[in-house]
Design a protein around this nucleic acid. Sequence first.
DNA 1: TAACAATGGTTGACGGCGCAAAATATTGAA
DNA 2: TTCAATATTTTGCGCCGTCAACCATTGTTA
Lengths: 168, 168
Amino acid sequence: MATTRIIDDDRLTAVGLLVEVHRGLTNKFAARLGRHGLSENELEILLRLGRTPNCQLRMSDLAAQTSLTTSGVTRVVDRLERAGLVVRASCDTDRRGTWAVLTDTGLERVTAAVADHIEDVDRWYTGLLTPEQLEALTEALRIVRDTVRPEAVAGVAEAARARPHVDA
Amino acid sequence: MATTRIIDDDRLTAVGLLVEVHRGLTNKFAARLGRHGLSENELEILLRLGRTPNCQLRMSDLAAQTSLTTSGVTRVVDRLERAGLVVRASCDTDRRGTWAVLTDTGLERVTAAVADHIEDVDRWYTGLLTPEQLEALTEALRIVRDTVRPEAVAGVAEAARARPHVDA
DNA sequence: TAACAATGGTTGACGGCGCAAAATATTGAA
DNA sequence: TTCAATATTTTGCGCCGTCAACCATTGTTA
């Protein structure tokens, strides 16, 4: 008879599967994103900005949404700003704060990148599953997400109201 | 009427969800793993070794299984060897090759770490879903995994046969 | 057997990100 | 008003993993 070792526990292989899929997809996506001059994190930040009413979000909100550190966000936005895809704007109501604002070229760039990217997503992920499978997958993931990262919807409300004030 | 923008495409949010879950879980797990002195990658390598018949795998096989670079594997194994959890052994049949062999303390360590780790996994992942949901999730992930990383089962067969030859 | 591509592994340079401390701005209390 | 406590962002430092170059070994072709 086979002894059941703890390192063979099903739950362990279940997370393992998730990790493998994540890495696999990341690798598949990297090439094409690279051709657009974007990393996964950069794309995500641009996306979050693009989805926000005024195309702007505060640094700390970006950090909360992406589960990068605030310092991580600083660096990513540094790069994006150097590339002309984002501008920093000071926040009138709280001079400690900084808006990251998507530029027009930033919006163009992310739109173009996404158009290609979606092909990959479809090819390596959503397109592999039946609608029912995809629905079940998404539903399950949503449940996990909501308990593991409840804070992931920060700052959208204020950003809609605020007027950016781009310096320089 | 609302115009549908490409950056709001459902498929995009579907991958987004996967990424969020992965990051969220990674963060939740990191603390406890850290207390055992292990990172996620280190744990994974120890696990793969522990699951192999002779507790050994070649560097290149580890790389294939983990989707780390071979150089990445080199560094991780460096650390694990420094910590006494793994030993390198030369491969008799191909003197280019190197076995990474799990030591006894390595096996103890990974067993202890996993015992704790599974609690977290259960609490933040598998335990959140009904058996049916978990089954559906796993099945869907397996489909994606099989097309995205078909090479993920390398080297187990030879390792079972081989005799390690630990130097020094 | 010599020459050469292919394979396995390590190393040096480099970039990305987290952590903790610093710099700046805001709020509250005495 | 002034000072302490708190909030927002940036910076210094270090770890980790990739990329490309490298050495050693193996297999192949002539």
